[in-house]
């Protein structure tokens, strides 16, 4: 241990880095031993013909990151939530989020209902903000609590769960359905929203000064019925899949056909410039007061339609295959 104020060696700096966070009862002792050990290793390397500076660097590099070594000497875990607590931690997070996020959204809507609703956009924005806020808070506090438990419980209990597992913790029943109600509801709602948007656009917006007419209201009626009808078919399929409990080949065929036809019709209308109003840039500019010096990106839109459709078909076939494997 040197008295000089400057010119601390690599070894000085290394030993200090390893032992700075160790307690007063072990820190100095580890420092003294580690310094001797490094010097031994350097000496051996120099005797073997290595240049002293390089020998010191090599010896320290072999010992590796001082923080990692310090963690080996220390008793504190090097993780926030270890493997023993992790499954329970994830279960608690899931359970809390599944209760609190919907609860907060319900409260938010109730508050809107009582105090008179803001615009649709405001409500949507507030919902997203509230959902993110709750998720971040739950994640932070639960993680903090588990990290605290992980650090304060006795060393011989580390690696064990808080509550020993027994068969009583298994779910009451194995769900016979392979599709969940929430995912079905979300899917149906989403399709419903798309149908509502399409119908609204195809019948023509009521106020062109504040609402943008994106789709061509002059599109021939059979096309609009086809586009909306195919989506309605997918809603029916989604409900049937939920009732049956899993995808069946017949339902998959209907879904794939509906999907592929919808994409084919939409893409064909897009490239024929029939789906989107020709003066969209002007209408858009009129509502949002923006320059209208752009044109409708037909090909990227067509590619997006094809990509979404292909993804849906792929996931439908995949689920059907999984259902067949489970049967």
């Amino acid at each position: 241990m040197s008295d000089q104020r400057t010119g601390s060696t690599l070894t000085d700096r290394y030993v200090w880095s390893v032992t700075r966070h160790l307690g007063p009862d072990t820190g100095p002792d580890v420092a003294r031993e580690l310094r001797g050990t490094v010097l031994d290793a350097v000496e051996a390397k120099v005797e073997a013909g290595t240049d002293p500076d390089r020998a010191e660097k090599e010896a320290l590099t072999e010992l590796g990151d001082p923080d990692v070594l310090a963690a080996q000497y220390g008793e504190k875990p090097r993780y926030l939530v270890g493997p023993g607590l992790y499954p329970g931690y994830v279960r608690l997070l899931r359970a809390l989020l599944a209760i609190l996020v919907p609860l907060v959204l319900v409260l938010l809507f109730a508050e809107q209902f009582v105090s008179g609703p803001d615009g649709f956009g405001d409500i949507a924005l507030q919902s997203v903000a509230a959902a993110i806020g709750v998720t971040v808070h739950v994640g932070f506090w639960v993680t903090l609590a588990y990290a605290f438990v992980e650090r304060t419980r006795p060393a011989d209990r580390q690696g064990e769960p808080l509550v020993a597992w027994d068969t009583g913790q298994l779910p009451e029943e194995t769900p016979w359905r392979q599709v969940s109600l929430p995912s079905t509801v979300v899917h149906v709602l989403l399709m419903g929203v798309v149908i509502a948007l399409l119908s609204w656009q195809f019948t023509g917006v009521s106020d062109p000064a504040t609402q943008v007419q994106v789709l061509d209201p002059d599109l021939a009626l059979p096309w609009t019925v086809l586009l909306v009808g195919l989506l309605a078919v997918e809603i029916v399929v989604a409900v049937l899949v939920w009732r049956v409990g899993h995808w069946t080949p017949a339902l998959a065929v209907v879904s794939v056909l509906a999907n592929a036809s919808w994409a084919t019709v939409a893409v064909w209308l897009l490239v024929q410039d029939q789906l989107i109003t020709a003066d969209l840039p002007e209408r858009f500019g009129a509502v949002f007061d923006l320059p209208a010096d752009w044109s409708v990106p037909t090909l990227p839109l067509a590619a997006a339609v094809i990509a979404v459709s292909a993804w849906e078909i792929g996931s439908c076939l995949n689920r059907t295959r999984q259902a067949a494997l489970r049967a």
Partner: peptide
Amino acid sequence: GYALLEYLDEAGFSVDGNTLY
């Protein structure tokens, strides 16, 4: 420490210092 490391190494137990110490 270091003598043990060398001894083990010669005996065929190659251990890293950051594990052994």
